[in-house]
Structures are given as structure tokens and as C-alpha cells.
């Protein structure tokens, strides 16, 4: 844990240096910041929105907002916390937008049960267990994502930041701008809800 914190501090210092360079007029520093954080931001957006294309789209939106606001960013919080906050808010806005809710209502649910909806019978005569394993993993991942997507945007963001991104209560509280007590109770409720929804695959 200590090593992790040390690495985090080093990362944070590098971020700060790049931010200062950008604020000093070096535009290339922003590219470096994007490269350093794009993976985590895309992953966060994907878990929040449940769609890879949208995740890429809204991760870009996050970086554009960051680019526009970075000149005014003061280094009293870490850059990654600030960036996560922009990403979470961007995704939450998307989740609560009319366009998203309308789209969600009209989308046919083809992934309800892939085994049943697939009209082509599966031919798994190959004794190699890998394809089956691979398919099972995919199905499992899809079920988990569906369970995450069933949570409210607030619960979703907290559980993703904690259990997928591995952030501390303190960092999460700073990102979602709530006190730690609120974060803890949201997380507890989110886990309870997920436990119910994932019961079939947990056993």
C-alpha cells in the first residue's frame, strides 16, 4: 500500500509539472497529460455509460473540457482528481439527458440472454475449452456491466471509482464533492444492490 502511495505521489508530481508547463504556454504538455490519463478516463466512461463508442466520445468531451479549464486550474487538488470529476460529471449529465433516456427506452434489448436470442445454434465440437471460456467471460462481463448500469448515476460513480478504479474514500469524496460518510453509505447501498443482481453468477 505504501509503495502504491509513493507511486501515486510521483504520478501526481509529474501531472503537476505538466500542468504548470501547459499553463506556461507549452501546448504539448496537454498531449502528455492525455496520454497518461486516457486509459483510466475511457474505462471510467465505459463503466458509467456501458457503451464503448459513447465512452470514447465522452472521454474526448472530458479532455476538451479539461483543456478549456486547465488555464484556470489551481494545483490545490490533484490533476487526476480534477479530471475524474470532470469525467464523472460529464457522464452523469449524459445519463440524465433526455436524449440518452429516450435512446435507452427505444433500444431493443438483444443482449437479454444471448444463448436464447441467437438463432444460430452454437457448434462447439472443438475440444479446446478456450472459445467456451472466452464466451462465458464475455457473457459474465456483460451481466456485470448490466448490473452496474442498473444503479443510479450517483451509486454507479462511487462503486466504479472504489471497486474498479481502486480509489480511496478520500479521493472519491473529493471527486464527487461529498463528505466521506455519504460516499460510504452510497457505496454500501450500491454493493448491496449489486449483490442482489449478481447473485446467479456469484454462486
Amino acid at each position: 500500500m505504501e509503495d502504491r502511495n509513493v507511486a501515486k505521489d510521483a504520478d501526481s508530481r509529474q501531472d503537476d509539472a505538466l500542468v504548470r508547463a501547459f499553463q506556461g504556454g507549452e501546448q504539448k504538455a496537454f498531449d502528455a497529460l492525455v496520454k497518461r490519463h486516457q486509459g483510466r478516463i475511457i474505462n471510467l466512461c465505459f463503466r458509467m455509460l456501458g457503451d464503448l463508442d459513447e465512452a470514447n466520445d465522452f472521454a474526448q468531451e472530458t479532455f476538451i473540457k479539461a483543456f478549456n479549464g486547465l488555464g484556470r486550474f489551481r494545483l490545490d487538488a490533484s490533476f487526476s482528481t480534477w479530471l475524474y470529476r470532470i469525467a464523472v460529471n460529464t457522464c452523469k449529465n449524459r445519463l440524465t439527458s433526455l436524449a440518452y433516456r429516450f435512446r435507452k427506452k427505444t433500444l431493443p434489448i438483444v443482449e437479454e440472454n444471448p444463448m436464447e436470442t441467437n438463432s444460430e445454434p452454437l457448434h462447439l465440437e472443438d475440444s479446446n475449452p478456450l472459445p467456451l471460456k472466452c464466451m462465458e467471460d464475455k457473457e459474465r462481463a456483460a451481466r456485470i456491466q448490466k448490473a452496474i448500469s442498473s444503479l443510479s448515476p450517483d451509486q454507479r460513480s462511487v462503486v466504479i471509482l472504489r471497486d474498479i478504479e481502486g480509489l480511496s474514500y478520500e479521493e472519491i469524496a473529493a471527486i464527487v464533492r461529498q463528505n466521506q460518510g455519504t460516499v460510504k453509505s452510497r457505496l454500501s447501498r450500491a454493493r448491496q444492490a449489486l449483490k442482489e443482481r449478481l447473485r446467479p453468477i456469484l454462486i
Binding site: G39, L52, I144, I148, V159, D163, G166, L194, R199, I201
Partner: peptide, 26 residues
Amino acid sequence: SSLRAVCEVLGTLKSVDSPPDFLNRL
């Protein structure tokens, strides 16, 4: 144990790969 299983399951989710042209598109 159920809650622990939930946390573990979430922790095992693979990260999605960022597209190679992400920065250019940005």
C-alpha cells in the same frame, strides 16, 4: 462473503483498451 464476492468480481473486470488514434481524434 457475498459482498466480498461482489468486490472481487468488480475488481476482475478487464479495462477497455483505448483506441490508438484517441489523441489524434481528440
